[in-house]
């Protein structure tokens, strides 16, 4: 698992990267009430805002952590945004990217570094 400073996690699975937000981020956000997902097939650029998450407190942007193409989105979150709170690193995933440059992954933190980062 890789972690970004934007509190996203990235997990490799059969050539694609699954992206979600960390448990720490979900706790900080509070109850999530709305998620807007990117379109399947869209080409995204690292750092670009491609999804929106709204909690009872505020709206936040989710950035594309890598260049690539969105190949799947978690439609469950449209009707059940609360899954982001109950299972942020599992059922609460946001989207899957096929990266065009997998070496971008190496720039991200591992778990130990992320836990240090949020201290």
């Amino acid at each position: 698992m890789h972690y970004t400073e934007e509190h996203e996690w990235l997990r490799e699975e059969a050539g694609t990267i699954i992206v979600g937000i960390t448990t720490h981020a979900a706790e900080q956000l509070g109850d999530v009430v709305f998620v807007e997902l990117p379109e399947i097939g869209s080409a995204v650029t690292k750092g670009e805002s491609i999804a929106v998450i709204e909690s009872v407190k505020a709206a936040s942007d989710i950035e594309a952590p890598l260049d690539g193409e969105i190949v799947a989105v978690n439609e469950v979150l449209v009707d059940k945004p609360e899954v982001v709170n109950s299972d942020p690193t599992g059922e609460g995933w946001f989207f899957k990217i096929t990266p065009s440059d997998p070496t971008q992954l190496s720039g991200y933190m591992d778990k130990a570094a992320y836990l240090e980062f949020i201290k």
Partner: peptide, 8 residues
């Protein structure tokens, strides 16, 4: 994820 949480 970019957002601001106002600390006390």
């Amino acid at each position: 994820m970019t957002q601001t949480i106002t600390p006390t």
